[in-house]
């Protein structure tokens, strides 16, 4: 099992994007690529070649599920887990994200000090 190093974070809210980036880079030690929209993520995913994608659900233009669907079509995304990060945290909504193929769901507001641990746990579960 390879070590998780590169994470792409697609989030339209810049303040959240910044908090997450600090949590992942400084606290978690990951290499993070932040994108403001799904289309930006799709455009840069091949170059960045992430090991895991952290994806916001509610986004203008292409929302999280649409972005996931498009990502799943890309060869470079084969085997790459996508974790939704969302403030829409009702039970049926969380269930629907999993049904779409999400490896995990992280609920906003998240704890930046334990965000990395949450992601690693999901990563480990994926590769167990």
């Amino acid at each position: 099992m390879s070590k998780l190093e590169r994470i792409m974070h697609i989030e339209d809210d810049l303040s959240i994007q910044e908090v997450a980036r600090v949590a992942l880079e400084i606290v978690g030690g990951f290499t993070v690529k932040s994108c403001e929209s799904g289309s930006q993520g799709l455009a840069e995913v091949a170059d960045f070649n992430p090991q895991l994608v952290l994806l916001d659900v509610m986004m203008p233009g292409m929302d999280g599920p649409q972005t996931l669907a498009e990502l799943q079509k890309l060869p470079c995304m084969t085997g790459v887990p996508v974790v939704f990060m969302t403030a829409k945290a009702q039970t049926q909504e969380v269930s629907s994200y999993r049904e779409l193929g999400a490896a995990g769901v992280i609920i906003k507001p998240f704890d930046p000090m334990t965000l990395s641990e949450q992601i690693i746990e999901i990563w480990n579960q994926m590769h167990a």
């Binding site: 303040s15 949590a23 906003k108 998240f110 704890d111």
Partner: peptide, 9 residues
Amino acid sequence: RTPLTSIYG
């Protein structure tokens, strides 16, 4: 939750 995420984080 969205602004709270920023504030709390």
